[in-house]
């Protein structure tokens, strides 16, 4: 579905901007090459600052790469204009980390899900909203509620409902369970797993926590400072990690076991 080769991205460094003139650029992504095939769930893992969110946003062409190419279903989208991208936007959706800041606090849930549908000129909006809510297991009565009236787990479901209502082919989930407690985290992960099966979605799941990835993903990409240090099937990442950084990430996960080694 996605073919990425030699992807470079540099963004202006606003912190060290001189008083006059252009800000210096920081190289965030360095020559990434990989594919994402249709129907696959790929995990993107790394520490903070490793470029995982930036990579996700570049896939969706929210950033324009400085070098390399990104193609989506055989079509080169590296330098498409916003107008040319618009019809593709419906097919790639995103679920955000913090539902409180990605859901408009002044709009009821129904409208939050319906707005992007209207924007893309789809028909039968009300029925689509119903279906989306049903898919994520939220009662229809919640349509008239506002984000602050929901729990963290429910809000994250609204974020997912908004994405799947567009009937996309690809969803980018950026740290969507980091803000949730373990029980809601398990609920959202199970829901996502079912939706991938049911709707035949392709999913890129970004996380800094490898432990949530084992269940969901078939392949895992480990990023470190903008470079791929390991890209392998999920079993291999967990059972026989090649890169020292992957090992380090695994060791840092606190297991619910007081006798864990290396702690």
């Amino acid at each position: 579905m996605f073919k990425v080769s030699g992807l470079d991205l540099a963004l202006p460094d606003r912190v060290n901007r001189p008083l006059i003139g252009k800000a210096p650029e920081i190289q965030i992504l360095k020559g990434l090459t990989f594919d994402i095939s249709s129907g696959e769930v790929i995990g993107i893992v790394g520490g903070s600052g490793s470029g995982k969110s930036t990579l996700g946003r570049t896939l969706l062409r929210l950033y324009e790469p400085t070098a390399g190419t990104v193609s989506f279903e055989g079509r080169d989208i590296t330098h498409l204009s916003e107008a040319e991208l618009r019809p593709l936007r419906r097919r790639m959706q995103m679920v955000f980390q913090d539902p409180m800041s990605s859901l408009n606090p002044r709009r009821p849930i129904g409208a939050i899900i319906a707005d992007p549908l209207a924007l893309h000129g789809l028909d039968g909006i009300s029925a689509r909203v119903d279906r989306a809510l049903d898919h994520v297991g939220l009662p229809n009565a919640l349509r008239h509620r506002y984000p602050h009236e929901l729990s963290g787990g429910q809000r994250q479901r609204v974020g997912i409902a908004r994405a799947i209502a567009m009937e996309p082919d690809f969803i980018l989930a950026d740290e969507i369970v980091s803000g949730l407690d373990v029980s809601s985290q398990a609920q959202v992960l199970n829901l996502l797993e079912n939706l991938v099966d049911e709707l035949g979605l392709t999913l890129a799941f970004i996380s800094h926590d490898l432990s949530v990835i084992r269940r969901l993903c078939s392949r895992v990409m480990v990023l470190y400072r903008g470079e791929i240090v390991e890209l392998a099937p999920v079993e291999q990442i967990f059972d026989a990690p090649k890169a020292a950084y992957t090992r380090e990430l695994l060791d840092a996960i606190p297991l619910p076991d007081p006798n864990q080694k290396n702690w």
């Binding site: 985290q185 398990a186 490898l210 269940r215 619910p256």
Partner: peptide, 19 residues
């Protein structure tokens, strides 16, 4: 139930069970 919901990456068969 809370322990069962906590992810354990060392155990591939472990399913995450919400409380």
């Amino acid at each position: 139930a809370l322990l069962a919901a906590t992810p354990k990456y060392t155990d591939p068969g472990s399913s995450l069970v919400p409380v």
